[in-house]
């Protein structure tokens, strides 16, 4: 059944997992992949680009969708926002050669507090569902790409009868994993901020 633009926007704002997956990883996938790879080619997979754009759009409680007045189609609205977003991302990443990289490096050198951050992170992770904990561990902490842990994720899901996805093929399953990971990561970030990090 085809959903209207209004129904899709309502579903996205309500964080309906099925609408999010269908919209970002099926309907918009070709367009978002094209735009993302045009501006950031060779550096990111389509799943990473789409996942990142999903996070951007979901930011601030879906503000960009809440202010949408439907004077154009949702497809076109998303296309324009994505084009500007990835263009802006490329511009930001093109650091001039004489930029003072020590400033950026300094952000990564604060190893003294790393131990405490990891302790707090693990405390929060222990409260997550096992599958969400697995995603955070493998993608965020171990640094694996979502596309490289699909077999592990599938084996994990098969062992746990409470988990269920309607993904029909590998690409849809990848979409499910990436969307779920993004949601957990966002939740994790919120909890980290709540206990005093990042603000």
């Amino acid at each position: 059944m085809m959903m209207t633009d209004e129904e899709i926007v309502a579903g996205l704002i309500a964080s309906d997992a099925r609408v999010i997956q269908e919209f970002f990883f099926v309907r918009c996938r070709p367009a978002l992949s094209y735009i993302g790879q045009y501006f950031c080619h060779d550096r990111f997979t389509p799943e990473e680009l789409i996942g990142e754009f999903y996070e951007f759009l979901a930011a601030d409680d879906w503000r960009k969708l809440r202010i949408f007045r439907f004077t154009c189609s949702l497809n076109s609205y998303i296309t324009i926002i994505a084009s500007r977003y990835f263009q802006h991302k490329r511009e930001k990443e093109l650091l001039p050669l004489d930029d003072n990289i020590a400033v950026v490096k300094g952000l990564q050198d604060d190893s003294r507090s790393d131990t405490f951050v990891m302790e707090d992170l693990h405390k929060i992770m222990n409260r997550l569902q096992p599958f969400d904990r697995f995603l955070i561990q493998r993608i965020l902490i171990d640094g694996e790409k979502p596309g490289d842990i699909l077999d592990e994720a599938k084996a994990f899901m098969e062992k746990d009868k409470t988990l269920n996805t309607e993904a029909q093929n590998k690409a849809q399953f990848a979409g499910y994993v990436y969307t779920r990971y993004n949601r957990v990561k966002k939740n994790l970030q919120k909890q980290m901020v709540a206990i005093g990090y990042g603000q």
Partner: peptide
């Protein structure tokens, strides 16, 4: 900057997959 943004969007606007069943083909 504007020109590039709108031209990329124009090209992408015809790439929407309105039918989930043809997902594999893209």
């Amino acid at each position: 900057v504007f020109e590039e943004c709108i031209l990329v969007a124009l090209k992408a606007s015809v790439l929407y997959n309105e039918n989930g069943k043809v997902y594999e083909t893209v």
